[in-house]
Design a protein around this nucleic acid. Structure first.
Lengths: 269, 269
DNA sequence: TTTTATGAAAATGTGCACATTTGGCATGGT
DNA sequence: ACCATGCCAAATGTGCACATTTTCATAAAA
């Protein structure tokens, strides 16, 4: 359950967009070859595909997303791509420059710090509200999640560790049941997921399980001050590990390779 | 200064969009009559005009925003309007229904409560972080703002009171200097500004100045618990005043009247 | 009278052609 | 060798025509 929630933000597996894309392709085939009208889910499929690639970190920071190649890769009209790109731009997931197209944003170190600080501040508020409505069921759920985290850590599954670490904080906000707050956190996480690939040291897990456990303990004890203090230390700890990696990596990924698994129908020359 | 900040969210005066629109119209005239190409700021002008109307509450909840009439009113092509509408939809400021156009969202009472709760939780986090970096200058600024609020209240200026009440909370987040947090609050306020016109009792000021003063006092004393408690009470107080006004007001505003001041160039039959 | 069917007008969605702008490359001048 | 200028291919932006869908009004049937 927790894994699926994270999937919404990070896109743990690539099965979902692929399924959508192929289903879409089938439907398109049956409507002739170039009727070109009325595909309500086609936008969504392309949107999800690009979004997943973005959140998975397959699209590196600074990469140019030109319309013609994408239209060719996905086998849709350029306007379709265009609309999706602008939508992603409006959601601040892509950087749109007038007359110069869309690029994957290249966050500065200050940007990353700002996102982490926002998350820290938000979680302080969440914890404040959460101690007012803790019950055994919530503690139970959080402990179950901690068990998952520990299991992943002990078996050395780094990918699962990172995913579950993020999911823990998602659990905390979701416990409040407020869609606005959940959306805001999702926004922050989606932004930091791109950042991780730039600034995060790949050598270590993002969040230490112990610190998560301490937060749960403080929650169980209804100790607001301690919960906030632990959470704050936790975030500062993570932030201190950020390092600048601007060693001029002009990763000129070609888009065909990134989206190869999604749409095996691109035929060039 | 504070008034101008709020203007970004609520749009206190309609002078700005008008200026943009008329300037745009002039530029368009000089390029012939229907060259129809290359107006980089035209999108922005239309966007700002609709956004301002939305935030000012001139566009009532549930109103349909059809493309043809808007294109006629603003004197631009339908595609232009279309793009702006979809952008506002991506920002969740308009409700987009496939094949059925754009409508001003009609928030439920639960929606309103959710927004207020989110603001409450966010402010708890902001205050927690803020007590760590209070200085005399901040207290000074907040007190100056309180003075403005009191002045508006004593002279019975309801519009200014409402505006300044919101601006107080903006001041609190802006004091942290975190753009992500400021954006989130702006998002919440822009949503509630639409809601106010539906659920808020028009008879009373939104925020009591005394409660704002109590928050500042707690901040000056570096008393986190008290600051949060006062803030919480403050919000609950406001929330308790919400009332359901679903008495079927099918306000079928025609768009021409709403945007009349913006573009006096619409010629129909 | 209420409900259902039907068709026309209006509104939304989309591909396409074309204008404009950008970026790179070659050429020529200092 | 270096910088400036101009040209050409590619990419972005936009209006337009047309397909599809919705909506509304009118008429027909229960």
């Amino acid at each position: 359950m927790s894994a699926r929630q994270m999937c919404t933000f990070f896109g743990g597996d690539a099965a979902h967009p692929l399924g959508l894309a192929s289903a879409m392709a089938t439907q398109k085939r049956q409507s002739g070859k170039r009727s070109g009208k009325a595909n309500p889910a086609e936008d969504e499929a392309v949107y999800q595909a690009i979004l997943h690639a973005l959140l998975e970190g397959k699209l590196k920071a600074g990469v140019k997303l030109a319309e013609p190649p994408l239209a060719d890769i996905f086998g849709v009209s350029r306007e379709r791509i265009r609309k999706v790109l602008h939508r992603l731009g409006a959601e601040r997931r892509l950087e749109m420059i007038p007359n110069r197209g869309a690029r994957v944003p290249r966050p500065t170190l200050d940007d990353v710090r700002r996102v982490y600080e926002a998350h820290r501040v938000l979680e302080a508020g969440v914890l404040t509200q959460l101690v007012r409505r803790v019950d055994d069921a919530l503690i139970e759920r959080l402990n179950a999640h901690l068990a998952e985290e520990r299991a992943a850590a002990t078996r050395g599954d780094r990918a699962a560790s990172v995913r579950l670490s993020g999911a823990f904080h998602v659990h905390l906000v979701e416990a409040l049941g407020n869609a606005e707050l959940s959306r805001f956190l999702a926004d922050l996480l989606s932004r930091s997921s791109v950042m991780v690939s730039v600034y995060e040291p790949a050598t270590d897990s993002i969040c230490a399980v112990d610190e998560h456990g301490a937060i749960v303990e403080a929650l169980r004890a209804r100790d607001v001050a301690r919960a906030i203090a632990v959470s704050r230390e936790h975030f500062l700890h993570v932030e201190s590990r950020l390092h600048l990696d601007d060693d001029a990596a002009p990763v000129s990924e070609d888009l065909t390779a990134v989206f190869a698994a999604i749409k095996p129908k691109r035929r060039k020359r």
